[in-house]
Simulated scan of single mutants.
Amino acid sequence: MSEGQNLSADHFGAERARAIYDMENSTIFASRKDPRFSYCTYAPARKHAEGQQPALVVVMHGTGRAFTEYRDAFADFAHWNNCIILCPLFPAGILGDGNRDGFKQLVEDNIRYDHILLDMVEEVGNKFDCDFRRFALFGYSGGGQFANRFCLLHPQRLWAVSIGAPGSVTLLDTNSDWWIGVKGMQEKFGISPDFETLKKLPVHMIVGKADLETWEITHREGGKFYMPGANKAGATRPERIATLRKSFQDAGVKVHLDLVDNVAHNGLACVRQVQDFFADVLFKLRFDHNCEMVDR
């Protein structure tokens, strides 16, 4: 076999591997920033349709870490809306202590989960030759807590956010300490609340009307996240998301709330409404000349 034939075979092998492991339902990749964390993607095989750059949608898992299930649930949406889906995996007990909840607070010991995600976004953008300076973020349950807090720290990085059924909420309350409110956010994260940017961000919230169990979300003295006022947003997830919505609206942030009939605590049962919201925002971003996917 000639050198040219070898190069041709190598090129074919590389392209074939990319088609199998990178396009559509990807394999699981370790994060380049910190290989303790990983992610999978869905990228439509015919990306850049009609010269249009794909948008990025990040779907954050909850405590159950069902990240591939969420990836699969967004595959058709990605195909029909020219999007790439990124689903991170933040394993439970990353410090060897069995903690399932660290990622929900964005910080655990010296780990900044928001920074890990932002590097994954850059990594995926490089992989697919896309500019993902802005992306959409959806999280449900524990992922809803992550989405709630991430959008407070990094609203300028998002073109939309969907906060699903968080068990605990961080309100736009400058009189309450973090994590209940945003007082002390600058000291903890080095970032102050940017209310003006939040006002421009399309915000969606969603919860099942039958999501009424409280055993997992009631904070008790001695609990790892307990602080006075930890339960003041309400007893159930619908009550807490209603309080969260009011705090956003009181700060001038518009919120679209979906209360889903006959749904208890089931994120996959809420995916259609999230996708409808993102599709509407995408349509406006792509066809309104006054609004762009990235800052120029």
Results as ranks from 00 to 15, higher is better:
201 L>S: 05
46 R>W: 09
267 G>C: 11
84 I>G: 04
132 F>S: 04
258 D>G: 15
14 A>C: 00
258 D>F: 13
174 T>Y: 04
191 I>K: 13
13 G>I: 14
176 S>F: 01
18 R>W: 15
236 T>Q: 03
158 L>K: 02
109 D>S: 05
193 P>F: 03
149 R>C: 14
101 D>I: 12
74 F>K: 00
284 K>M: 10
26 S>Q: 03
112 R>I: 00
123 E>C: 06
176 S>I: 01
58 V>G: 13
156 Q>H: 06
160 A>W: 02
74 F>L: 11
172 L>K: 14
135 F>L: 13
74 F>Y: 15
216 E>I: 07
227 M>F: 11
234 G>E: 09
85 I>E: 10
130 C>W: 01
188 K>W: 02
232 K>P: 13
33 K>M: 10
204 H>A: 02
43 A>V: 10
214 T>W: 01
43 A>L: 03
200 K>Q: 11
185 M>C: 14
222 G>I: 14
10 D>R: 04
49 A>C: 08
81 N>P: 01
211 D>N: 13
251 A>T: 00
205 M>V: 09
122 E>C: 06
65 R>V: 02
214 T>P: 02
287 F>D: 06
13 G>H: 06
209 K>G: 10
256 H>D: 12
8 S>Y: 04
80 W>M: 08
108 E>Q: 09
273 Q>H: 05
188 K>C: 06
36 R>M: 15
224 K>M: 12
147 A>P: 00
207 V>Q: 12
158 L>T: 03
40 C>R: 15
190 G>A: 14
111 I>K: 01
107 V>P: 01
289 H>A: 13
50 E>V: 10
93 G>F: 14
159 W>I: 12
138 F>P: 01
25 N>Q: 04
38 S>P: 01
29 F>A: 06
223 G>S: 12
207 V>I: 10
71 R>H: 10
10 D>Y: 10
207 V>C: 11
251 A>N: 05
196 E>A: 07
166 P>R: 03
225 F>T: 09
82 N>F: 00
238 P>L: 02
